[in-house]
Design a protein around this nucleic acid. Structure first.
Length: 308
RNA sequence: GGUGCCAUAGCUCAGUUGGUAGAGCAACGGACUGAAAAUCCGUGUGUCCCUAGUUCGAUUCUUGGUGGCACCA
């Protein structure tokens, strides 16, 4: 006799615009669970239209977590998300055998499933200093520094990627130890099971949905939303598809029409990047949205292999 | 109707003094454990409008079409 394992986290994932929200409602209603959003941009209360936050009606119907719960002025990252979700899951599993997490932020999903190494928080001033050095002296300068402080990581890292180099230096400076020595490369043990359900569509259909959604966002007032956020444009969180293209337009670098086209093609690019990441994960059970019924059946009949 | 210009990648165009071609955008692939909708790396996908000539060889030159644009009627 099959029985769904208590403390099971169902993860509904897939590229942006594929239609995860609609299915998540079905699954949540079916199991009577909360929904944990796994979206690194819907986290922020200052953004609504451009991040395609679910309708207020829907948010009232089913308890959601991590939707517009934080401010763009705080520092947020995958490690913090991991801690907070794991904590929340402990609470939710007391009353719910199954919890649904849905979203497309790859690293955040990975952080919840496998964990992230424990590292100290980074002083924002240190990061700013390193960024300054990158700007003034070039990436070679930072490379040389990393080669000295952590030669092992220097040989491992993509030395053309400034973000990686800066991060390693941040850890070296903050801890006084090499970054390498603090990279465990191990999965954390979780006391819950995971079922990953991937949703995908044919590329042209998906792109078409995205283009329509962008047009709808513009009708809903994305330009005004972006204009209000424009003064904070240099915050990392606002380096986001849908906003940065409009900031370019406000700066006079392109026409509104060009900005809209760019939002569309950059969203297409994001989709490809998401799929590249998801493709590597053998634990994902892939479906097309028309298979909604089948997915529900498979979950309820415990036919999907449960991954740990 | 006449004259002129144009026709090359999905789009906008460059180019070959005759040896089957390359940029931007788009598209596609990949890396990625504390910025991740971020950041970084890679890939040219082609009946060079059709036809008949000249030529060892034509996308390039010539003839005749077809389509588009402009100007003149």
């Amino acid at each position: 006799m099959n029985k769904i394992h208590p403390n099971t986290l169902i993860i509904l994932l897939g590229p942006t615009g594929v239609g995860k929200t609609a299915l998540s409602v079905q699954i949540a209603n079916h199991f009577g669970t909360d929904i944990i959003s796994c979206d690194s941009r819907q986290l922020f209360k200052e953004m609504t239209i451009g991040t395609a936050v679910p309708e207020p009606k829907l948010l009232q119907q089913i308890p959601h977590h991590f939707i517009q719960s934080n401010s763009i002025f705080e520092n947020y990252n995958a490690a913090r998300f991991e801690t907070e979700v794991v904590e929340l899951l402990e609470q939710l599993f007391i009353n719910q055998p199954v919890v649904l997490m849905t979203g497309g932020s790859m690293l955040y999903i990975d952080a919840v499933c496998n964990g992230i190494d424990d590292l100290p928080d980074i002083d924002p001033e240190l990061r700013a200093t390193l960024k300054d050095r990158l700007k003034n002296f070039g990436i070679q300068h930072l490379r040389a520094e990393l080669k000295m402080l952590d030669p092992d990581y220097y040989h491992e890292v993509d030395i053309r990627n400034p973000v990686r180099i800066i991060h390693a230096l941040e850890i070296c400076y903050t801890t006084g130890k090499t970054f390498t020595s603090q990279r465990t490369k191990t999965k954390k043990e979780r006391d819950f099971k995971v079922i990953k359900i991937g949703l995908n569509r044919d590329r042209p259909e998906l792109y078409d949905r995205i283009d329509q959604r962008v047009d709808e966002m513009m009708k809903a007032g994305l330009e005004q939303e972006a204009r209000m956020l424009y003064p904070n444009r240099h915050l990392n969180t606002l380096n986001t598809v849908g906003y940065r293209e409009l900031f370019d337009y406000f700066d006079g670098n392109c026409t509104l029409q060009q900005a809209i086209e760019k939002i569309k093609s950059n969203t297409h690019k994001y989709v490809r990047k998401q799929l590249t990441w998801f493709r590597k994960d053998p634990d994902i059970h892939w479906f097309h949205p028309v298979q909604e019924e089948e997915i529900l059946q498979l979950i309820t009949n415990y036919k999907l292999q449960i991954k740990n």
